[in-house]
Design a protein around this nucleic acid. Sequence first.
DNA 1: CGTAGTCTTGAACCGCGTCAAGCTTGGTGG
DNA 2: CCACCAAGCTTGACGCGGTTCAAGACTACG
Lengths: 259, 259
Amino acid sequence: MSAQTLTQIKSSGRPADVPVKLRCEDCPIRYRAVCADCEDAELPRLEEIKFYRSYEPGQAIVWGGDHMDFVASVVTGVATLTQTLEDGRTQMVGLLLPSDFLGRPGRDKAAYNAVATTKVVLCCFRRKPFNDMLRDMPHLSHRLLEMTLDELDAAREWMLLLGRKTAREKIASFIAIVARREAALEKRHPGGRMQVELPLTREAMADYLGLTLETVSRQVSALKRGGIIELVGKRNVVLPDFDRLVEESGDDSDGGWIS
Amino acid sequence: MSAQTLTQIKSSGRPADVPVKLRCEDCPIRYRAVCADCEDAELPRLEEIKFYRSYEPGQAIVWGGDHMDFVASVVTGVATLTQTLEDGRTQMVGLLLPSDFLGRPGRDKAAYNAVATTKVVLCCFRRKPFNDMLRDMPHLSHRLLEMTLDELDAAREWMLLLGRKTAREKIASFIAIVARREAALEKRHPGGRMQVELPLTREAMADYLGLTLETVSRQVSALKRGGIIELVGKRNVVLPDFDRLVEESGDDSDGGWIS
DNA sequence: CGTAGTCTTGAACCGCGTCAAGCTTGGTGG
DNA sequence: CCACCAAGCTTGACGCGGTTCAAGACTACG
């Protein structure tokens, strides 16, 4: 299986099968997940095959190469996708927030390591019936295509960050991305003074950004010294001026024309 | 429009509209492009709306932010997708070879700069009718989803390269990727002694890999000195031992379990 | 309190970027 | 046919940003 990262993965418990079955209509991600475009009449078919699982912080969801008999939507919590080289260097390649989709229809081996970084609840679909539904329900496959294209856009922006940004710009970009996504979850627009919670440890941020954890720590301190951010504990960041942060990130002023 | 890269983009000519209409059945990418899963009976509808365009080496296909009224498959040639920061730093985010898809259905502004690096022929579809066909023809949308998922996988491998590999590993990885894709086009398997043509200048390779062109040049020389590669001119590379090259790339030995 | 996990900070090192010079190749015109 | 030039590429010297190695601080939890 090749050498592993030094990071401890708590492989302790099995994932908990959550007994209760949330009704789709009451689901917090009803209008943003892969099922978003489905009509109410189509929901029963989804209800029938879905089941919930929960994972504790640090717990592995799947390990790259392992068999994976389901695909899933993140209902609550944060998970990461990572890839590693044989000598243990690891790079995060996906950050899964609520409504994001996990797994690839048409592939039964996981391509990446997926790990919960907070408590995570997944809405799972067994692979086979889900594939059948994809074939029969255009709303579902259309939405999946849309989400995949969005992920591809995000991956390409991430590539620009990894290939061409300085450490300081990377940190500023990361905080800005998290701020935007948290704002979107709460249906606000980012801007002005706001507070965001970083869902990752310094090490995980480093794996996201292609840096070492020491460099992450130093640049966070530097942004603090510069008055761009304020720290509340280690994991909470206050942004006195969101636009100021965006300037530090090296991006275009407004984030551009991608709707 | 913000600062630009120093690279000259020959915006000289308009794209040539190619008058002849290749029949889909005779198309070199018939079984690998977005139309691959369509049945023969479905082809007439595609034939009806498609048209061909060709571009000269160095010519821009679209500029990020510009209106784009078509999507397309690359029939022959090589094109690149790039993103740039305001100060001119540029990162390649896509390398389009024959059969690859260009453009995003459902977005009429280009998100990236697309430039032909060799002579390129595109098979174009006007946006609107193509969207309609996506809705009506499951074979088409299913194939597009599959291709998009493949691109996402490629982007994530690329992220690992950008974030965690050394300059030498990046160069070795790039040559291995090109070798594999050229082998696939000719329906061979990579391995043993083989020759590959690099479709990019040193500068474009640098933009691909998140390096400077000087570093690219130095590492190519270093691989030559080490006997990993031999040069035939500047753009052709002989690989005496493909597996040896893969070792230098830092990847798993066999390229892994992604089918 | 003590310990483990997480984070910060410092000092030394080095890989890659920067700047600069020169080479190779192919095309153009005298 | 050769002189000239531009584009692409190579190579060297040097400096800096980020890594590495190491020590210590903070916090949560027993």
